[in-house]
């Protein structure tokens, strides 16, 4: 199958717009409007199943981005095909307040650990993957999931002073806060930045 055929097949079968921002990269988003949660989930599973059938043999990653201003999580499913060769990223928007989702581990085995990671870092719950509810790299975590944008590591450090580390990190915390202030345009030498 060639890239154009993939774009066309997905358009015909699911009615989804596939964009190709860079060579060998495809992006498709499951639309957020006009469908119930169940239908959208089913569509995602169908699409992932279909992609597997048409030659995307490798699940590269599942990851999540927190768009806190829009109140949504964006799940990204990265599928790579060795034969086409192209990467297809399927994007799926989740409600940030109630991040419940279903697993795809029965379609893609590597989803086991990726979903576990997303659950720990963002708090997205994947129904049907019991493994994803187990702790992954964090131990005894007692705050909101750390990769959410509203998690403040400096605040966390203040609330959880390091025990037995042999030194007090708080002087550094102040330093960190100071350095976090963004440099102004004048300070960077008058250059407007890369996009100018």
């Amino acid at each position: 199958m060639r890239v154009e055929e993939v774009i066309k097949a997905i358009q015909d079968k699911f009615g989804l717009e596939v964009e190709s921002p860079y060579p060998r990269r495809l992006r498709v988003r499951i639309p957020a409007e006009g469908k119930s949660e169940e239908e959208r989930r089913q569509m995602l599973r169908d699409l992932l199943q279909y992609a597997k059938e048409i030659g995307f043999q490798h699940m590269s990653f599942i990851t999540c981005v927190d768009f806190i201003k829009d109140g949504r999580f964006e799940l990204n499913y990265g599928l790579w095909s060795y034969t086409i060769p192209t990467m297809l990223v399927v994007k799926y928007d989740l409600d940030r307040e109630n991040p419940k989702h279903i697993t795809v581990v029965d379609i893609w085995k590597p989803a086991k650990t990726w979903e576990q990671e997303v659950h720990e870092m963002f708090g997205v719950e994947f129904d049907g993957n019991p493994r994803s509810f187990e702790p992954y790299v964090l131990e005894d975590w007692d705050s909101i999931p750390p990769l959410r944008k509203d998690f403040d590591p400096v605040q966390y450090l203040k609330e959880h002073p390091m025990q037995g580390a042999g030194y007090d990190p708080l002087p550094y915390v102040n330093l960190v806060e100071k350095n976090l202030e963004q440099p102004t345009v004048e300070e960077t030498g008058g250059d407007e930045g890369a996009d100018s």
């Binding site: 990653f61 990204n76 440099p183 300070e187 960077t188």
Partner: peptide
């Protein structure tokens, strides 16, 4: 280097780059 090094902005966007490492596919999104 079209930017000045102290700090620069990158336009809005997203990109995934994966490369062949000795362990396997290594990627940055």
């Amino acid at each position: 280097q079209p930017y000045s090094g102290l700090a620069f902005k990158v336009p809005q966007g997203e990109a995934y780059v994966h490369i062949e490492s000795t362990k396997g596919e290594f990627g940055y999104y």
